[in-house]
């Protein structure tokens, strides 16, 4: 059990998300960086769908109300526990009364705080993931008590475990992200695949607007609205790409030039506004699925 002492930025509970309701217009939600989410639970031997705290755009200070085991994954943050500073991707012991500060230092957008036993929070429609626009869950505020479930083992057995993410997930601010051409790829010229983009200041859990050269549409016919998915890259009538993420609408009316592959979505999620330099490279469906499978296997191995 933890108490939030200070919160700046955005902190929400997330899990694997809410499936089965997309045909009613309800997005899946869940962690933006699916890999960091899975590993933080793996480090603590939690269930695969355990609830974690997603932290972005600032920092959070928490105080342990009783002894617990924590881990933080993601990119762009550091952890100060009692008198030590920890890197991410490590589980550690926190005594009752100690404070833990999770602080943005740059090089990423989102941190995932896991606790042995998972956070306990009510589920709505089968998931604890916050979806603020739909009135589900809420922002964590100073003074909130964050309850947790029963750890799967003695705390001493769950701490000092670590995972080196770089081999599996090469987080970078200058990545080349794999994409699969979208259903309306033929409407556009090659600009999108040949130039660099950064994340604009307009980014949130719904999606990231990219800043860079406008993408010319050769065919301006209005698209009839259709379903889209996490990673879909829509091109606005002004030629601006928007990558749809966890809280994005389930359908859209702008043409989709491409889709970021599942394996590279965590890298995109951690690309910072104005700093990142992103290129997109076409990959085959077989290559994308093989990469996703390999990562899912890595995430399923005990740490």
């Amino acid at each position: 059990m933890l108490e939030a002492l200070e919160v700046s930025g955005v902190a929400t509970f997330q899990d694997l998300g809410r499936s089965g309701y997309q045909q009613y217009g309800l997005p899946v939600s869940g962690a933006l960086d699916w890999f960091a989410y899975q590993i933080v639970n793996r480090l603590l031997h939690n269930s695969q769908n355990a609830v974690v705290l997603e932290i972005g755009l600032g920092e959070i200070v928490l105080q342990a109300k009783r002894d617990c085991a924590l881990a933080v994954t993601g990119a762009g943050f550091e952890v100060q526990n009692y008198v030590w500073t920890f890197p991410l991707w490590t589980s550690f012991y926190v005594r009752a009364g100690w404070t833990v500060r999770i602080k943005k230092i740059g090089g990423g957008n989102w941190a995932y705080l896991g606790i042995a036993g998972g956070f306990k929070t009510p589920q709505v429609l089968g998931s604890a993931s916050a979806y603020l626009r739909g009135g589900m869950g809420r922002l964590i505020q100073a003074g909130d008590i964050l309850e947790s479930g029963t750890p799967s083992a003695e705390l001493s057995k769950l701490v000092a475990r670590n995972f080196a993410p770089q081999a599996a997930m090469p987080y970078s601010q200058t990545p080349t992200l794999g994409v699969i051409p979208g259903p309306q790829r033929a409407r556009f010229n090659h600009t999108f695949f040949e130039t660099e983009y950064t994340v604009s200041q307009s980014f949130d859990r719904m999606g990231y607007r990219l800043a860079g050269p406008a993408v010319q549409a050769l065919d301006q016919t209005e698209l009839i609205s259709e379903g889209m998915t996490t990673g879909s890259i829509q091109i606005t009538p002004q030629g601006q790409p928007i990558v749809m993420l966890a809280d994005a609408p389930t359908t859209g009316g702008y043409p989709k030039i491409a889709n970021v592959i599942t394996a590279d979505l965590p890298i995109l999620a951690q690309c910072e506004a104005g700093i990142s330099r992103i290129r997109f490279k076409e990959v085959s469906l077989e290559e994308a699925q093989a990469k996703y499978k390999a990562l899912a296997q890595t995430a399923a191995k005990p740490c």
């Binding site: 499936s19 309701y21 997309q22 009839i224 379903g227 889209m228 998915t229 389930t250 359908t251 996703y292």
Partner: peptide
């Protein structure tokens, strides 16, 4: 098949790619 999303003239199928 995990879930589906009907459009006006399309059906989007989210499937288990693993």
């Amino acid at each position: 098949i995990i879930e589906t999303v009907p459009g006006y003239c399309t059906l989007l199928i989210h499937y288990d790619a693993l």
